[in-house]
Simulated scan of single mutants.
Amino acid sequence: MHASAPRRRLTRLLTAALTLLAALAMVGLGSDPALAADGDVAWTVRTASNAYGADRSSYSYSVNPGGTVTDALVVANRGPAPLDLAVYAADGFTTGAGQLDLLPKDGKSVAVGAWLHADRSSVVLEPGASVQVPFKVTVPANATPGDYVGGIVSSLTQSSDAAGINVDRRLGIRVKLRVGGELKPGLTVEDLSIAYAGTAHPLGKGDATVTYRIHNTGNAMLSAQQAVSVAGPFGRLRADAAQPAPSPQLLPGESWQVSVPVHGVAPTVRLTATVTLTPLLVDASGTTSPLAAVEATAGGWAVPWTLLLLIVVLIAAAVGVRVLSRRGRAQRERREDARVQEAVEQALRDKDQAEG
């Protein structure tokens, strides 16, 4: 009786963990028609062919506030067993790995996931059958201009071999929405800092690590080319980092943490790290355009401790030699003074004896 309670708690924890992990495993988002297969379970999703085009890899719309757009998702059962799939929409976000993912079904969507409504919330498909699921996107009249990303999802919940554990498999297609109005793209560099690791060689160079956060402060989806350098006072002895990879596409409001190593940095006591971002904007036609570069700087310390220790030792040795030299000279002077004093006293004694 007492042993069953911990076991039930462990089962509930495993259930929650596996369900969450499965919910975050988004397959085929924004790529070619997606296929999910697990033994005898398989289905695909793709965009419908209509006035927006054929063989689209994702949905992309430009809509003014208060406007609507209609489209459709095609779901096909490629497996030997019937399928009962849920259909819903969800907001997108960028994962720590730099990939676009969607909120789980019970997540709180406030944009695409709330504005997109499918004609049905589920589909039942016999083997070999397919169905077209129409949907409508209704943009609120007070929607803020800019880019929004989400997806329309087909989902299958299955019980695994472990008792009480459900696995949620999802297939979805990305929905990118640009709401009409003034587009204000913007990136900033935040929390910029530099850390220096020296070398045992007194005249050698060390490594620095520059860390910062890229923050999308505008209303457009952006990525960024990055350049990082470290220099001493007055820009001297500059060292450039190897070209960092471009950041992932960041949605408005999102941030991306970056850590860049810089090798061959001279320990000039005071260092300045410089980060330059070139924002990259993708327009409605899919063309990528660079925007005006953004630059930020921050200072840090790079004290050459080994060199300073060597200098201290050399100074101490020089001082020691000088002190010993002075002591030796003083001893010699004292011995000479004593010898002269003794000679004078001896001369006086000799004179006294002669007079006596």
Rank of each mutant, 00 (worst) to 15 (best):
A3T: 13
A3S: 08
S4D: 11
S4T: 12
L10C: 04
L10A: 10
L13Y: 03
T15M: 09
A16I: 10
L18W: 02
A23D: 13
M26A: 11
G28S: 11
G30Q: 04
A42N: 05
T44D: 09
T47A: 09
A48E: 12
S49Q: 10
S49I: 08
A54R: 15
D55E: 13
Y61Q: 12
P65W: 05
T68W: 05
T70A: 12
A72I: 10
L73I: 06
V75P: 02
Y88R: 12
Y88N: 07
D91L: 08
D91K: 04
G92N: 03
T94P: 00
Q99L: 15
L102W: 06
L103F: 10
K105P: 04
K105S: 11
G107L: 01
G107V: 04
G107A: 01
A111Y: 07
H117D: 14
A118E: 12
S121W: 01
S121I: 05
V124T: 15
E126Y: 03
A129V: 04
S130I: 12
Q132A: 12
V133W: 02
P134L: 14
P140S: 11
P140H: 06
A143P: 07
V153M: 06
D161L: 14
A162S: 12
A163C: 03
G164V: 13
N166Y: 03
V175K: 01
L177R: 05
R178V: 11
L183N: 08
P185A: 03
L187N: 00
T188M: 04
T188F: 01
L192W: 02
I194K: 01
A197S: 14
T199D: 09
P202D: 02
L203E: 07
G206S: 11
G206L: 11
A208G: 15
V210I: 07
I214H: 00
N216I: 00
T217K: 07
T217F: 01
G218I: 01
Q225D: 14
Q226N: 08
V228S: 04
L237E: 13
R238T: 09
R238V: 09
Q243N: 03
P252I: 01
E254P: 00
E254I: 00
E254R: 00
V260N: 07
P261L: 10
A266V: 06
R270L: 14
R270F: 08
T272V: 11
A273I: 10
L281C: 01
T288N: 01
P290H: 04
L291Q: 11
A298L: 02
G299Q: 08
R322Q: 09
R322K: 05
R329G: 04
V340L: 15
A343P: 04
V344Q: 11
L348D: 12
K351M: 10
Q353I: 15
